[in-house]
Design a protein around this nucleic acid. Structure first.
Lengths: 273, 273
DNA sequence: GAGTGGTCTAGACCACAGT
DNA sequence: CTGTGGTCTAGACCACTCG
């Protein structure tokens, strides 16, 4: 929403009244609802718990502002140990859905919270939301690593690396320009695979597992070339993310510099504590 | 609104480990180093452990790519239980410093990782890095909540809210324009306090604890007024963050729209799994 | 004081990787 | 096979909040 700062309204310094905000019935513990646990499922118990409670919150079975309280009792009622119950609740805390206060209890957050999904996946989630994602490979070449890339990927400077440039679109609108560098010995990704899915999926297919990544998010002015690719006016602002990803052996596996179309893309983060 | 799949990223199978890149001596378990634990400290054991291991990684005592391995043995050697040891290591995983692989062990990440600090505090961390932060209060007024603000803060539309606008500088350079809305009954923050410290510190002083926040990060073109305040050329791109913060009772306590100077400010995030 | 979440323990069994 | 991390249990004590 635009409208930053004008809208001169009357200035009412000072008084600040003290009345309570609407406490909607101050609902107490609301976990008499049904939770189905499958102890033979490969999905961990705490995951099953967290997901079902999350679902109940989102569809209103557990109202905003109500308390979940008493971990010990909850654990007993659901037939799990307290640490397991705690871990489930912790997942909800990390998602910003509930808050805990020592000596008091656990409450569902009041007000709207953004679902902080994409903390783990890229945006192949576009598929899930029927965004019709498509990828066009702009270039796919092996070249000697520059000093910066070599430093990031921890390979000798000049070593061959794969450089990828792709254009991602959703609903036939350009969304992002993705530039990636990968160590050549780990980069047997095929162009066809890249066109049909995401890079991480392609890497997964070749046995490379990406388990953690550090990302820096900035804004800058897009280059004319970038703006043209993104179908934006020249000199438009763009959102950028520089990402260094590691596999399960701790090796830097991918260094990416991504440029997002700001009108269609944003990042959401949940901060805790 | 739809919530199809949570539990994303179940890493698929995959054999094929592209053997060792420059393994510097293939260091094995490197935790014969000294760890001091104070069981009478208010700081939890897992926190003490995580911090000291983190320090040892950063100053090179534990080399990149080396293994930490064997939680059970480590726990025994350090005189803590395995869950405590695990929680400490999990902290390091969440920071992107180490990776774990079932059946194999725990390794320090190779390559440079960004310290993902500011996940919890705002940027009063500027103080810590001698950035000489300063804040100028541009406006401080009570006004009726607009529909948007009322929805975010969960107050009746038209209810009085405090609107704050501040300019944050570091090293005498403007860094950000901070606009915040707070429920009037919780907003007895003083202008003087705001000039000398952060908003969250001011809130803490009045007993309001912010424990979680959802943030959306975007890029857009700055308004002429914003660019002027930030000492940037007109029509420069800006980095924006819209944040909704909750206190320990689950109440929405602050809705902020912040505009950052892109040449001096960026966000870093660590993604896991 | 009673009730809550925060931490910690000492075991246990499982799933998976590598031999 | 052995060794690793992943999960789970059933207790325990502490720190904190609130009436």
């Amino acid at each position: 929403m635009p409208d930053p700062n004008n809208n001169r309204t009357r200035l009412v310094r000072g008084e600040m009244e003290n009345h309570q905000r609407s406490h909607p019935a101050m609902t107490e513990t609301l976990l008499s609802l049904s939770i189905n646990l499958d102890r033979n499922s490969p999905v961990p118990l705490y995951r099953q718990l967290a997901q079902q409670v999350q679902g109940s919150i989102e569809n209103g079975e557990i109202p905003r502002g109500s308390r979940l309280g008493n971990e010990v009792l909850l654990a007993g009622r659901l037939g799990v140990s307290r640490p397991t119950m705690r871990r489930a609740i912790q997942d909800l805390v990390d998602q910003g859905m509930v808050v805990r206060k020592r000596g008091v209890g656990t409450q569902v957050v009041q007000g709207s919270f953004t679902r902080p999904v994409k903390l783990t996946s890229l945006f192949d989630d576009l598929t899930d939301s029927d965004q019709a994602p498509m990828t066009k490979v702009l270039s796919h070449q092996y070249l000697p690593a520059s000093a910066q890339v070599a430093a990031k990927l921890q390979v000798p400077s000049g070593e061959l690396v794969l450089r990828l440039r792709r254009l991602r679109t959703a609903q036939h609108e350009p969304l992002a320009i993705l530039e990636n560098f990968l160590p050549a010995n780990l980069a047997d990704v095929d162009e066809d695979v890249l066109e049909s899915g995401g890079l991480y999926q392609a890497l997964r297919d070749t046995g490379v597992k990406i388990v953690t990544a550090n990302q820096r998010i900035r804004a800058r002015q897009g280059t004319p070339h970038q703006c043209e690719l993104l179908n934006e006016p020249p000199e438009s602002p763009v959102l950028t993310a520089d990402r260094l990803a590691f596999n399960d052996s701790g090796q830097a596996i991918e260094w990416g510099q991504h440029v997002y179309r700001p009108s269609l893309y944003s990042f959401t983060v949940t901060l805790v504590r």
